[in-house]
Design a protein around this nucleic acid. Structure first.
Lengths: 193, 193
DNA sequence: GCACTAAATGAACATTGTTCAAAATGGATA
DNA sequence: TATCCATTTTGAACAATGTTCATTTAGTGC
């Protein structure tokens, strides 16, 4: 049932998700969907929860050996996941709840934890920086990468080919890290791609 | 009529836009809305067209004196517009047409032209770089800034206060430009905020 | 087998985008 | 003015879709 919903969103986008389709594919009644998820938002949120979870797992699996390599790995992993599951991630970022009900706390936490994955490597790169400041930097870098990827893959706006996007993203990380080193006055070696 | 639609989207989000509300507010029949815009997508796209146009006008008005200052101005102008008209911009970026009809060419062109506004200052900063490459850089910087702003203002994810976001964005531009100078080997003076 | 609870069902409802035949409007002509 | 035609406007009816809830079915304990 959940699987069906995820499959539909993934294949044809959130807007193509219909309660009746899910019920039919799961061979149960419409009412059962409501018993299980409360309402339509509940179904979507459950799928979105899975999405963050899967993404988080992949990001957390990026090796934490060298901080620069790790940051590159995080960016590339995010790109890969986005390429493979663009509609699922768009559902996560773009779905707005009916009548401003509050965004589920647990999903928020998972997203924050995803941001925080960049915290450690950034601290290692800039040991002298204020940790609270690093947290902001992490969120900002995440957001910047997200923007590059999500707009880059936007078919409506002539999507950048995945291979090209991968290069661009790596270059962005390099450039930004180089800038960080300069502006924070901490001489670190750049890394050849 | 158009004004009404824009007002509704701006105030309560794209999802709250209803044909009947527009018709009622404009004191005309439902059918008239269809005569004017073809269908619901047509109405939304017309509002979105206005949005890009207004944004483009503001961006184009940023003085082009110093390239670094111009890039800062562009970023800050975008942030200001986003803060004032978050729902309008979200409508522009997030609205997906019914049954993958093609995205209107003219809107695409306007967005591309907005990307291209960063072309000139970037060329001035890196005269030796390949122009085609600069175009990619421009799109990428735009996308990065967009990500920072759109995720930063996302209320669902505990929005960053506008003033803080403004600082962060300025810092991002500084950092990234510093990185560009280093990696492209073109020594340019940084700029105190 | 009975009584009771829990779960599943899907017909009916409410909302909303869409259509289109009919009505209203406007202008040209006799 | 009256008549005809073209254009525009109208809103009732339709279709798609989220939601509800009385009814039915299934399950469980005694």
């Amino acid at each position: 049932m959940l699987e069906t919903a995820r499959a539909i969103i993934s294949a044809k986008g959130l807007r193509s998700l219909k309660v009746r389709d899910v019920a039919e594919a799961a061979e149960c009644s419409i009412g059962s969907v409501y018993n299980e998820f409360g309402d339509f938002d509940g179904l979507i949120l459950t799928v979105n929860r899975q999405t963050v979870q899967a993404l988080s797992a992949r990001l957390a699996a990026v090796p934490a050996d060298d901080p620069v390599r790790q940051l590159h790995g995080l960016a590339e992993t995010y790109l890969t996941y986005f390429t493979e599951h663009a509609n699922l991630l768009r559902s996560l970022y773009e779905h707005r709840m009916e009548e401003d009900r509050p965004f589920p706390e647990d999903i928020l936490l998972m997203v924050m934890r995803a941001f925080a994955l960049m915290h450690d490597p950034l601290v290692r790169l800039m040991p002298k920086a204020d940790p609270a400041d690093i947290a902001l930097q992490a969120r900002m870098m995440f957001s910047a990468a997200h923007g590059i990827i999500s707009l880059g893959l936007e078919e409506r706006m002539v999507a950048v080919p995945p291979e090209k996007l991968r290069q661009q993203l790596a270059r962005f990380v390099d450039t930004y890290l180089a800038g960080l080193c300069v502006t924070s006055g901490q001489g670190k070696k750049p890394r050849g791609s």
